[in-house]
Design a binder for these strands. Structure first.
Length: 822
DNA sequence: GACCTGCTGCGGTTTG
């Protein structure tokens, strides 16, 4: 059978199901069947699964036909294809699609799932007779590499597909995949590697990371789907601009405008940026619109899986009219689309916003509509920025992790746990990955020494001699070491938290210790949309009961910061430039904000794209310098520290530093020599690395970062399932290692990695450098406003928020706002 | 009573 004939079969099959394959699917089939590796670029809901499931099955049909095989007895073909998904729920869904395709084409294959939920009996069965089609996660794949005789298990493998590759590649889970693939490519030379990815800014890099340097030798193709998605962005506006606060993040003062949107729609998802806000919004919506009780639900990552599943099912069955949620609902799972999407506050990134918008109008070609609810005035410019970014197709890059030695160490021990490895065989495989292509011979030797002896600092301790060398084979012989290692596979290090359960034992979700520590038995808090009374805390379990009493607290969780993406920064600056142009603007938001912008202009200045604004003023609090790079919090954090450091070189002076996504403020009780500083190039990118190191407490930041590195590399053991080691304990033992390395083995690669990660991810050094270069080419405008400006206000409020109790803050904000009328 | 910044994901006690 030729490829054309085969694709014909598939097309007929599609026709009988009354679906039409898209052009991109047919392209993918043909490329796959002609022996290419590649990447399919298609959005969720486009039937992207079939673009690769079909040719994998057809290839098998072709082979059967070529060998003259007739219908054989079931199975026994060995493992033929592995499908990797980042999420278990998605794995279930893929498994259904794959099963349908297998049945539809009448192919004699088993389709099986292998995740952490798979029973050990089932796993044993799979080891003995592998399914032909296996759907699994990166972690489970690594666990399979930790099995004895894995090479035999994988020997018939023809294809590995990495679904949602854009999700994986920007994390250490992606690196795990790169490593697994490097091994599988050797074990099965005829292996084809494919990825499926949503659109990202750096598609080429996505392909390189997936295929490694072997893509230079092999045949590869990028298949782009022809499906266009129309997205309409509508901002929810108050009646007048004065109704919007200048600062804040919650946005509930627009709740009366949000309720009609929910009521007029059959189904609505309301996305908030934090779990805490989801709780608050849910509560406020119920207060304002009690008729939503029973048809509205909430969904976030700290609510138990069981409750979340219920919500997802109810949404699917159209029993719910609205769900308040966090990103827990924007990941890959393709439930039935909803009619309306509402985004509360800035989504911080174009891709995230588009992903959420895409939850509505799911059919190809349908319009997706998303409402943007600003939480403070200036945030409205982000709506305009998002709209244009979508229009011109500007989406974020996903930066692949490189040189993550913690992941590599874990992988080497994994191989040593199963069949052992020869270093001269594995080294070239490692070098062939995107992530580790720059590893040097000396670094490789260090890694081998580390897994066998614990390295220079730990040589004296037997515990860290995990791997032994026997006839040139690196092997783990100690059963305890092997078991603990299998228990620790993975790169997600979660914070330990307390379980919240009813006294009866029913599990509701998790909460952080510091929050519950503020409460006493009898106190009432609001969680998972319920009023819960704290009964007692017993062995890491918070026992609660339902109550009618009013809650006095809403939990919050300490998650990652999400700075404004650089693509958003670019568009935001463009929109602010647009504001400076005369006449009616294209974006309603900008016209709406015009009075506020005029005020900013009167009190200070509105910078054009060629200008950089600095405000210098004195208040009761002291002397303020505020700068507006619009580069996101992370960059401003570093830039603020950098500037404080360089100013202190001119004159002895100390500052308190505050920042948000738009700018940062230095506050001092003495006059700040800002004019002199600008003269002396205080914003120069020269000596950036050196000055940053001198200005921030990089040791402390790296030490904190080291917690995850220590856990992933296996230096610290996270505990047995159900008996997690306490967070504080994990933190302190990893700090111990950090300090030992810092003092006695400064060339330790894990230690160096911690410092690198601080620069790359915490401070976004590369982005800061670019920003400084840009600023150096801009005209610097220093104004001395006599009253706080709309630009400065939110930064100042955020600073006070950290220091003052909320009551005092409110007074303060009122007093400041009084000064605004001029 | 108003005020709240800080997301998501997986894995797991057993072996010749």
């Amino acid at each position: 059978m030729t490829n054309a004939e085969l694709t014909d079969i598939a097309k007929r099959w599609f026709a009988s199901k009354s679906w039409t394959p898209f052009t991109f699917q047919q392209e993918a089939w043909e490329a796959y069947l002609s022996g290419y590796h590649g990447l399919v670029n298609a959005p969720t809901g486009s039937g992207k699964t079939y673009s690769l499931v079909m040719p994998i099955l057809l290839e098998f049909l072709n082979e059967q036909a070529a060998s003259g095989a007739t219908k054989k007895s079931r199975a026994g073909h060995g493992l033929r294809a592995i499908w990797i998904t980042p999420i278990k729920a998605l794995a279930r869904e893929i498994s259904n699609s794959a099963q349908k395709a297998v049945d539809g084409l009448g192919i004699d294959w088993h389709v099986k799932l292998r995740t952490g939920d798979t029973s050990s009996a089932e796993r044993e069965k799979m080891k003995k007779s592998p399914p032909e089609f296996l759907i699994t996660t990166p972690e489970s794949l690594q666990l399979m590499l930790a099995q004895k005789g894995y090479a035999k298990f994988f020997e018939n493998l023809r294809a590995v597909v990495c679904d949602e590759w854009h999700e994986l590649m920007g994390s250490k889970r992606g690196v795990q995949m790169e490593l697994a693939l490097s091994r599988l490519k050797t074990v099965c030379p005829q292996l084809k590697v494919w990825g499926i990815s949503a659109t990202i800014g750096n598609m080429d890099e996505a392909l390189q990371a997936l295929l490694g340097s072997s893509h230079v030798r092999g045949k590869y193709k990028v298949i782009k789907s022809d499906i266009k998605k129309a997205i309409e962005v509508e901002s929810v506006l108050p009646d007048t601009v004065e109704k919007l606060p200048w600062a804040g993040h919650l946005g509930t003062n627009l709740i009366d405008k949000v309720i009609p949107i929910i009521k007029n729609s059959k189904s609505t998802l309301i996305f908030t940026n934090t779990r805490s806000f989801a709780e608050i919004w849910y509560q406020r919506l119920l207060d304002k619109a009690p008729e939503l009780a029973g048809i509205m639900a909430m969904h976030h990552g700290s609510i138990s899986r069981e409750l979340r599943d219920w919500v997802e099912d109810a949404l699917h069955n159209e029993q719910l009219k609205a769900v308040v949620c966090t990103s827990s609902l924007d990941l890959g799972v393709d439930f039935r689309p909803v009619e309306t999407i509402i985004q509360i506050g800035s989504p911080k990134g174009v891709a995230r916003f588009m992903q959420r918008a895409g939850r509505s109008g799911h059919q190809p070609g349908a319009l997706s509509k998303i409402y943007f609810v600003p939480t403070h005035s200036l945030e409205l410019t982000e709506a305009a920025a998002l709209r244009e970014a979508i229009a011109i197709g500007l989406v974020e890059d996903r930066i692949p992790y490189i040189r993550s030695f913690d992941v590599l160490i874990q992988y080497l021990v994994t191989l040593a746990v199963s069949d052992g490895f020869r270093q001269d065989e594995i080294y070239p495989e490692i070098k062939g990955t995107f992530s580790y292509s720059s590893v040097t011979d000396a670094e490789w030797k260090w890694l081998l020494r580390f897994v066998t002896t614990g390295g220079a600092a730990l040589t004296a301790y037997d515990e860290y001699r995990k791997v032994e060398i026997e006839d040139g084979v690196y092997k783990v012989k100690n059963r305890m070491v092997a078991m603990r290692h299998r228990l620790s596979i993975g790169t997600i290090v979660s914070d330990s938290s307390l379980q919240v359960k009813y006294v009866s034992g029913k599990y509701i979700g998790t909460i952080e210790e510091w929050f519950i520590a503020r409460l006493s038995p009898g106190d009432v808090f609001w969680f998972a949309g319920r009023n819960l009374e704290l009964v007692r805390i017993k062995e890491m379990v918070v026992q609660v009961r339902n109550t009618k009493k009013k809650a006095k607290a809403v939990p919050s969780w300490q998650g990652g910061r999400m700075p404004l993406s650089s693509q958003m920064s670019v568009m935001l600056r463009k929109k602010l430039h647009d504001v400076t142009r005369k006449g009616e603007k294209e974006d309603v938001e900008l016209n709406f904000l015009q009075p506020l912008m005029d005020l900013q202009k009167r009190r200070s200045h509105l910078p054009t794209k060629n200008e950089f604004l600095i405000e210098y003023f004195k208040s009761r609090e002291g002397y303020h310098v505020v700068m507006y790079p619009f580069e996101g919090r992370a960059v401003h954090e570093g830039m603020g520290a950098l500037l404080a450091h360089r100013l202190a070189q001119i004159t002895p002076i100390t500052f308190s530093i505050a920042m948000n996504d738009y700018g940062f403020e230095l506050l001092s009780d003495q006059e700040i020599p800002i004019y002199e500083a600008i003269e002396t190039d205080v914003l120069s990118p020269d000596n950036l690395w050196r000055d940053i190191q001198a200005s921030i407490n990089s040791v402390e930041m790296a030490r904190r970062r080291f917690r995850d590195i220590a856990a992933i590399s296996g230096l610290v053991f996270k505990g047995y399932p159900g008996h997690q080691i306490k967070d504080r304990h994990l933190q302190s033992s990893s700090q111990l290692f950090f300090d030992v390395f810092n003092d006695y083995e400064s060339e330790n690669l894990l230690l160096l990695q911690a410092y690198e990660e601080v620069m790359d991810f915490q401070l976004e050094e590369a982005r800061m450098r670019k920003a400084l270069e840009r600023i150096n080419n801009q005209k610097i405008i220093i104004t001395e406003p006599t009253k706080p400006t709309p630009f400065a206000f939110p930064i100042m409020v955020d600073r006070m928020r950290e220091k003052l109790s909320s009551e005092k803050l409110e007074d303060r904000v009122k007093r400041m706002q009084l000064q605004f009328d001029d």
